[in-house]
Amino acid sequence: MDGPHERHARSVSRSRTPTRFAYAQPRQRRKHRETLKDCCKKIVAFMCTQVGVGALLIGYTVIGAVVFTHLERRGNNTETIDVEAFRNSTVKKLFLVVMKNNILDRSGFNQDMNKVLKVHQDQVSQIFKHGYDERPVEEIWTFPAALMFCLSIITMVGYGNMVPKTFEGKILTMVYAIFGLPLYILYFRNMGTIFAGCFKWTYRRLYECSTEKDENRKKIIVPSTACLWVIFAYILTGAIMFSEWEHWDFLDSTYFCVTSLCKIGFGDLVPGADVNASNHGNQTKIVINFLYMLLGLGLIAMCYNLMREEIRVKLKEMNEDFNQCLEDTKIRFLACCKRCRKRDLEYEDY
């Protein structure tokens, strides 16, 4: 009734304003808190699902790439010096061989040469096994390459065409893997459900379009052949793409796609590892390989999800069938036995 008047009075009187403040502030604070809470909840929920996990994964790899490039570029590469030293010593040895065989005995000369060269080769290839790569460190640890390296750690592919050589790099790799693997598994699961949902939806739509709505809508299960076709098509596109770019033969690029999507990752064939090609082209290739891998692993997760469902149903059916078959044979066998016994009995009676 006298609301406006009271309010007016409150606003006017100085003595009453603090009480009003004290009354109003908690409510505001609570509101703040609730909005904050809601925000937090939303962020966490977003991070744990769908796009968030993908973003998290990509962010993690980017951070890892930055750190690894920083660490590994700082490391002095003693290997180039070693190789130089090996070469110098080989030259010396060759000279000694020449001096020794100065009577010019050709076969002896050739044999000794071969031996010395073999030793040289062994030394160099030993170093090479541990990751020596005639290029300087700056060229090896470019940003896209480091990105690929990080992805190969957390997805457990492990190509091994580039490996950490510094002490800190090795330790960081282990730590990085420990935190990265659960993240990747989360990504795998999430992507699996999302892709499976999308695929199921499209499949259902297509199914409904192609077969008119005469049947009642029951649960449509995506057949595993469809999943396999999707995977097959994905591998095929990858194979064609890589064979076009890298001038591998078709079998090689198929082999590469399968082994890397199966997370085996031998590392005998890696796109963008060709030294002779231009550096810029290599890096785009690496980035595209990165995307190809991410998407492909998601697709595999999808197929895994869909096929698990189907296999479960199939197994149940198979179990029932098997049981029925057993029952059938049992009944038949019993009938046969009965007949035999009857005959026996008749015979004995006779």
Binding site: G158, Y159, F266
Partner: peptide, 17 residues
């Protein structure tokens, strides 16, 4: 190096260096 090898193998990364 040895522990690095063990870890990389058991986590199925397998660089092969």
């Amino acid at each position: 190096d040895a522990s690095y090898f063990c870890f990389i193998s058991l986590s199925t990364i397998g660089f092969g260096d």
